[in-house]
Design a protein around this nucleic acid. Structure first.
Length: 465
RNA sequence: GGGCCUGUGGGUUAGCUUGGUAUACUUGCGGCUUUGGGAGCCGUUGACCCCGGUUCAAAUCCGGGCUGGCCCA
């Protein structure tokens, strides 16, 4: 899809599916409208479930950070000082110490971690929070994808050693895998280049997915900080031998870009397509009422809705007086995975008609097998959506061995020796961005695309959003 | 940081050159009627980004501002 077409199509879905109202009078700060927020809440609630199940404790830190605390880690502030909002006044008075509105919460949390952690028995410390952060984006903004007020989750952990912190990263990747499966999003894990890692990190793992305009979208990242923050913020513990040591830290975060990714990856010409795992309504029931029949269609529809709801399925009965066709279009635009139609004919035949949102396939379920039938369809839809998205992502990867004739709409797999000179040279001449080396090494043998040195690992590069 | 464009009911828009009652579609609301892929009819709410200037008269012309968008560094 071309860039302009993508922009129009994307914004059209955001507006027509009623996900966000971008008319709020601050650039990049949009209003979560009810349906969009329902989707975000489904995602948040799954994220809570995952972190709670892996012994993370939810916390909620203040939005504002005093300037002196913010400035303690020098790479970190260098990376952020041009894109943070400042609070400089309180009432009529100028503040002695200006306050940063958090762009991320390291510098809010770590002074407190320093107080909380005393001994090795306090470790590992595993926390997360789901909050909004603020970054003064100067580039073009776009709902969910590039905003100035960002809804996200961030987990922050502290460990006794670099190895323990590394184990946390492995756990984060397992959590990510489950989240990705739940929302049917394929992803790539790449270790970012040194010039693109998070300010202050030892290394950064980027989590990317691919969008229909051929660009990749970074949905989140996982960072290993080593002791880069614990030294300036003085987060230490006393080990079994009475020695005081700095903790090793990690973070993991993903933002509302997940919603942007859902739109881009699964959406089609009829609108949004939501994965059953996080759809606010997994099933919509459209009663087909008619004056020509004496069957109590509405009563049967209510009963059907109740049976499904009692079985724990998120169901919406559309009993408004719009005509059925109109309702089909509306719920398709909103991406409801499964539509059930119930009319006089169905009731007489003891069935419920269904239509899948992802494939358009239609059929009937025996009324007596309603719950297992719907469950099975939702499972199949979920599996098919993920498989299809993975296939598309695979097809977007192109292997290249020369800087000539590079396909512009692909994710590139290429040989790179890893040195910054060759990396910058490649990025400057092609205008592609290096995503990095895959976190899970892949077999490869080839030559660095710039200097020609033999290499045994492949790097990925792409146009990014 | 530099350049270009833009702004009209909730949404999409016509009108602007050549100043004079603001167009249409859609949505919303009320009613009648209807319901297996966007029904029809009737009624109705609702707008010229802001400030100043020119003029008898400004959506339209001029100046300044603000907003949004695009391109380049």
């Amino acid at each position: 899809m071309k860039e302009d077409d993508f922009a129009d199509w994307y914004l059209d879905i955001v507006e027509k599916a009623n996900l966000s109202d971008k008319r709020y009078p601050i650039k990049g700060m949009n209003v979560w409208t009810p349906y969009g927020w329902k989707i975000m809440r489904q995602i948040d609630s799954y994220i809570r479930q995952e972190f709670d199940a892996t012994d993370h404790d939810e916390v909620c830190f203040p939005l504002m950070i005093p300037e002196d605390q913010f400035a303690k880690e020098k790479d970190h502030i260098k990376g952020f000082d041009e894109e943070v909002y400042w609070v400089t006044h309180a009432g009529l008075n100028e503040l002695d110490v200006r306050l940063v509105v958090r762009p991320t919460s390291e510098t809010a949390m770590y002074p407190m971690f320093s107080l909380w952690i005393r001994s090795h028995q306090d470790l590992p410390l595993k926390t997360y929070q789901i909050v909004n952060t603020f970054r003064y984006e100067t580039k073009q903004t776009r709902p969910f994808i590039r905003v100035r007020e960002i809804h996200f989750f961030e987990s922050h952990t502290c460990h006794v050693s670099e190895e323990d912190a590394q184990c946390q990263i492995e756990e984060d990747i397992e959590i990510l895998e489950r989240i990705a499966k739940k929302i049917c999003l394929p992803y790539m894990l790449c270790i970012r280049t040194d010039w693109d890692k998070f300010p202050g990190a030892h290394y950064t793992v980027g989590i990317d997915t691919s969008m229909p305009n051929g660009r990749t979208l970074q949905m989140g990242s996982i960072h290993h900080y080593r002791t880069n923050f614990s030294i300036p913020y003085d987060i230490t513990y006393e080990d079994e031998n009475g020695e005081h040591k700095h903790v090793h830290q990690t973070t993991f975060g993903m933002s509302e870009r997940l919603v942007g990714a859902l739109i881009g990856v699964h959406g089609d010409d009829n609108g949004l397509v939501l994965p059953p795992g996080i759809a606010p309504f997994q099933v919509v029931i459209i009663p087909i009422v008619s004056k020509k029949t004496t069957v109590d269609v509405m009563g049967a529809a209510r009963e059907t809705a109740k049976v499904l709801a009692d079985a724990g399925i998120r169901v919406k009965l559309d009993d408004s007086d719009a005509r059925p066709g109109n309702k089909y279009y509306e719920w398709e635009m909103k991406g409801v995975p499964l539509r059930l139609e119930l009319g006089g004919r169905d009731i007489e035949n003891g069935v419920v008609s269904f239509a899948r949102r992802d494939t358009g396939e239609k059929g009937t379920i025996d009324a007596k097998d309603l719950v297992p039938g719907v469950r099975m369809l939702l499972d199949v839809i979920s599996e098919d959506m993920l498989a299809k998205a993975e296939e598309i992502q695979r097809s977007r990867i192109a292997e290249i061995d020369s800087m000539e004739d590079i396909p512009q709409d692909k994710i590139l797999r290429l040989g790179w020796c890893g040195c910054p000179e060759c990396g910058h040279r490649f990025e400057d001449t092609t205008e592609f961005k290096i995503l990095g080396f895959p976190y899970h090494p892949e077999p490869f043998s080839g030559k660095c695309i710039v200097c020609g040195k033999p290499v045994d690992k492949a790097a990925y590069a792409a146009h990014t959003m």
